[in-house]
Design a protein around this nucleic acid. Structure first.
Lengths: 248, 248
DNA sequence: GTTTACGGTAAACATACGTTTGAATACGTC
DNA sequence: GACGTATTCAAACGTATGTTTACCGTAAAC
C-alpha cells in the first residue's frame, strides 16, 4: 500500500525508535551474516514474509543491501536458512523427550507426558531473548499461512518426522481411539499450539486474564486441556447439539 | 520474488487453467463490482493479502484495472469490504444461536450447545460454493497473521462483541472455572477453530484420515473434544508431567 | 437536445521491489 | 610486500507494484 504521504524525513532522521534496541548490543558483536539472520527472523515474524523487504532487513541489520544475496542467494533462501536453524533443534528435542517418555516404567507412556514432550520444545525453546525472543514461534505460525508452496515444503521437512512419531505414540496411549479420531485430535492439538505460538494478541482484545506469550504458563494450561480432549468419548457416543436443524 | 524467467507467453496464452472455472458461470452474471469482491476474496484467501496484486485481481475478475479503485478506493479498503460483508452475518448468527441456547429449558445452557453455537457459523456459513466456497474461512484465518495493524482492528470490530458474549455464557456454564482458566480455554478454542478454518493442509502431510475442510465433520469432532477440554480439572489439581526438570 | 451522473477504459505516474554488477576493501598466507 | 580469496560497497537494472489521470460511452433527467 503506497497511499501514505511521501516520507519527508530524509536528513536528520532522529525519531525512528529502533525496533531492535533491546538486542542492539548483542547485534553489534555479530558478523553481518548473523545479524541478517537475527533481524530477518524477527521482521518476518512480526510482519510476514511478503511484507518485509530485503532493503528493510539490510537497513535494520546495518549491512549492505548486496550482502544478503551474497550470503543467502535470495530472500526465500534466507527464510529457509532461518527456519532450518531453529526448527532442527526443536524437532530433535521432541524426539529426545519422546524417547525419554518411552523409557519410563509405566508403558505405554502417560498421555500428559507425551503432550508435554511435544509442546515444550516449541513453546519454550526459541524463547531465549538474546536470540530474538519468541520470534521463531511467531514465524512458524506465520509460515502456516504463507505462500503455501514454499512453506508447506519447509514445514513438512522440519516437522513431519517428529509429528508422525508422536501420532504413533499417542495412538498407543489411547488405543480406544480410531485412527481418524486420533488424526482429528492431533490436528486440534496443532491448532492450539500454533495459535498460542502465533498470537499473544487476539485474546488480549477480549480479556487480560491470560498471556499466551508466556510459554511455560501456556504449557501448564494446555496439557490438561488437551489431555481431557484426547480422552473424550468417541464422537458417535456423544449427544448431538440441538443445532442439527441448521446443519441439515 | 522476481527471479523467475520472463514470461514468454504474450500472444496465444491458452494454457492458463482458469482458477475460477468452477464459478465462471456465476461470475458472468455479476456486476464488475461483485466480481471483484468474489475473486479477491478467494485470491486473498489462497495467497495472502500481500501476495495478491491489484492487477491479478482485476485480470481474474475480468474488469479494468482502474475499476477496483473506482469501487473500493484502495486495495486495503477492498479487504475491509470483503471482510465486513462476510463477518457480520457470522457474528449475527452467533448471537442468534446464543439467544436460542439461552431459551432452552435447562439453564445454564449446555456446554456443547454453546460450543456448537459459536463454531457452527464460522465453520459452515461461508461454505456456499457459489459464493467462493470456504474462501472466507481461510481469509479470516490468514488475517490473524497479516500486517497486524489492519487485521487486528478488523477482527476486533467484527468479532469482539460475540466472542465476549460467549465467554460470559461459557463462564456461566462452567462456574467452577476461574476467569483466567476460562480465558485460556477460550483461547485454545479459538486456536482449534482458526487452524481448522485455515488449513486443510498440514494434517494431510501427516495422514489422510481426516479432512478439516469439511466444516460439518470438523464441528462433529471439535465439539466433544473442546467440551472435554473445558471440563478438565483445574490446572493446580493436575499432576505435572515429568518434564518439570527441563522447565527449570 | 442538452445536461448530468455514472461506469468503464487505456495510458501513464511514481515508487518499491528483488537481484546483479564491478570495483573497492579486508585478511590470512607465502 | 604481494598474492588470492572472501567480503563489503555504491550504483544500477529490470520489472512489478498501487494509484491517478483524462477520456469515452451510455442513459436517465431536465
Amino acid at each position: 500500500m503506497s497511499s501514505e504521504p511521501p516520507r519527508l524525513v530524509e536528513a536528520g532522521e532522529a525519531q525512528q525508535e529502533d525496533r531492535f534496541a533491546d538486542i542492539r548490543p548483542v547485534l553489534a558483536g555479530l558478523t553481518p551474516r548473523e545479524r541478517i539472520l537475527v533481524v530477518a527472523e524477527r521482521m518476518f515474524a512480526d510482519e510476514g514474509l511478503a511484507a518485509v523487504s530485503v532493503r528493510g532487513i539490510t537497513a535494520a541489520a546495518q549491512v549492505n543491501l548486496a550482502s544478503l544475496h551474497y550470503h543467502f542467494g535470495s530472500k526465500e533462501n534466507l527464510l529457509e536458512a532461518i527456519f532450518e536453524a531453529r526448527a532442527k533443534p526443536i524437532a530433535d528435542e521432541r524426539m529426545r523427550m519422546l524417547a525419554l517418555c518411552r523409557e519410563e516404567p509405566g508403558r505405554p507412556p502417560l498421555l500428559e507426558q507425551l503432550l508435554a514432550a511435544f509442546l515444550l520444545p516449541a513453546l519454550t525453546l526459541g524463547v531465549e531473548p538474546r536470540f530474538g525472543g519468541p520470534a521463531f514461534a511467531r514465524l512458524r505460525a506465520r509460515l502456516g499461512s504463507e505462500t503455501e508452496k514454499v512453506s508447506k515444503r519447509i514445514l513438512a521437512k522440519a516437522f513431519d518426522e517428529s509429528s508422525k512419531a508422536f501420532m504413533v505414540a499417542l495412538g498407543e496411549a489411547l488405543p480406544e481411539l480410531t485412527p481418524a479420531e486420533l488424526a482429528w485430535r492431533f490436528h486440534f492439538l496443532l491448532g492450539t499450539m500454533v495459535y498460542t505460538m502465533a498470537y499473544s494478541g487476539r485474546i488480549q482484545s477480549l480479556t487480560d486474564a491470560c498471556d499466551p506469550s508466556d510459554g511455560r504458563a501456556a504449557l501448564a494450561h494446555l496439557v490438561p486441556f488437551l489431555a481431557a480432549g484426547f480422552r473424550a468419548p468417541l464422537v458417535n457416543d456423544t449427544a448431538q447439539p440441538p443445532t442439527g436443524d441448521i446443519l441439515g
